[in-house]
Amino acid sequence: MAIRIVLADDHPLTRVGLRDYLLKEEDFELVGEASDGIEAGRLIESKKPDVALLDIRMPGESGVSLARKVRDLSPSTAVIMLTSYDAQQYVLSSLKAGAKGFVLKTTTPEDLARAIRIVASGGLYLDSEVSQAMESPGFSPENLSSREREVLVEAARGLSSKEIAGKLYISERTVQTHLGSIYDKLGARNKTEAMLLALKYGVVSLEELLE
């Protein structure tokens, strides 16, 4: 069965490129194209696609705010965020808004197809260029202890070390030690990377991390 897709991008040339990428795959069906956020919202509501590819910066409504609405407009639709920007905070914002994938517009046709197939089957996909920065070749993550998982989840919710310490009844220094150990195990250099890598490796689930 074909994967039904809606594509929204305000830039005509990149939209054409992406469309051509999608048309190469036989099991993909492009059911609609939009050049702004509002049109994209209408398309998603009426077509109820399996996957929506949304540009982050669009006139009318941004991809992030549209992704938040998609949960209501068409709960069965998985959103993949498209962007020219590799900012990790875009990734986090997109995931918090409910997106299941984050793909750079400079991605290869193969990677785009892979991303669509993964999110259509309920998975999570992060562009290798965004996560590449976080990984060194041949690195394999270690499992986090349950305490470390707790600390990471609280940190992901935006709590400061002091607040985490208060909530988990441990000292601030212990929180710092846990965070250091989490970074080491995941190969991260900061909290954002730790969160993204934990998601990527499936150490924590999206729901757990971003609720």
Binding site: H11, T14, V16, G17, D20, T106
Partner: peptide
Amino acid sequence: QDVTALIQQLRL
């Protein structure tokens, strides 16, 4: 965006 489109066309 233009260069991105260019990359896409090159890949195609």
